[in-house]
């Protein structure tokens, strides 16, 4: 369960968000420039904002009225930005281990993740030698290795060709069914939203326009942005 109530100053408008969602897979759906990425960054604690409150599973991450601001490293929120943003100077294995320290996160989750995401053959490779789809799988693994309470995915399929998309989607579905951790998935692609979301939050022109089941919400032509 995540509850968000924010005023987010963006150029050229202020994004007002008041929403809560509890499903395993929530899709944040909206056109480019609606402020989706900024919202993810704010949830992760990477973007300061003046007014608002965010709580995750009962933990307050940010509350402007009580001057609470948990830094990103204490939020336990995994973040997979667009184009994966792997650490270019580290190998795949080192990327996966980056957030895993002996104390906080059990080392045994790593073999499971390597298995789940089919990363076994990539471990020694450098990120520069990976394909876009492989990068995305590593980025997923890197975020999940820290056992986050919420995973933020920013258009993970963007820029991939149809074939690569089709090879990634099963992993995302596997992730969803494994129930490992709930995710918030940003996209402006209609089909992805229907395919992956249990629940859709619709973001247009600076506010939440609607929230509901993907089939109900996205059947109307009105909200097709990927044409």
């Amino acid at each position: 369960m995540i509850e968000i109530d924010l005023d987010l100053a963006l150029e050229p408008f202020t994004l007002q968000v008041n929403v809560s969602f509890a499903s395993q897979a929530t899709v944040l759906f909206g056109p480019s420039g609606a402020g989706k990425t900024s919202l993810l960054e704010t949830i992760a604690g990477l973007r300061p904002t003046v007014r608002g409150r965010i709580s995750l599973q009962g933990t307050v991450l940010f509350d402007s009225s009580r001057r609470v601001f948990l830094p990103p490293e204490q939020r336990r929120i995994g973040y997979v930005p667009q184009e994966a943003a792997l650490f270019p100077h580290l190998s795949v294995l080192e990327n996966l281990q980056f957030g895993v320290s002996n104390g906080s996160s059990p080392l045994r989750v790593l073999p499971e993740l390597i298995d789940l995401l089919d990363l076994g053959s990539l471990l020694e490779r450098a990120p520069a030698t990976l394909s876009g789809g492989e990068c995305m799988r590593v980025a997923l693994g890197r975020a999940l290795a820290t056992s986050p309470r919420l995973l933020l995915l920013d258009e993970p399929l963007r820029g991939l060709d149809v074939e690569r998309k089709q090879r990634i989607v099963p992993y995302l579905l596997r992730l969803r069914e494994a129930g490992r951790c709930p995710f918030l998935y940003v996209t402006h692609n209609h089909r992805e939203a229907i395919l992956l979301g249990h629940e859709v939050v619709l973001l247009t022109s600076g506010k939440i326009a609607a929230q509901g089941k993907p089939a109900d919400l996205l059947s109307t032509k009105q909200y097709s942005f990927d044409l």
Binding site: P72, E73, I77, Y79, P81, A85, F98, R142, A143, T146
Partner: peptide
């Protein structure tokens, strides 16, 4: 940014 979200 990503490194921070990984708990560092």
């Amino acid at each position: 940014d990503v490194a921070r979200t990984l708990g560092r």
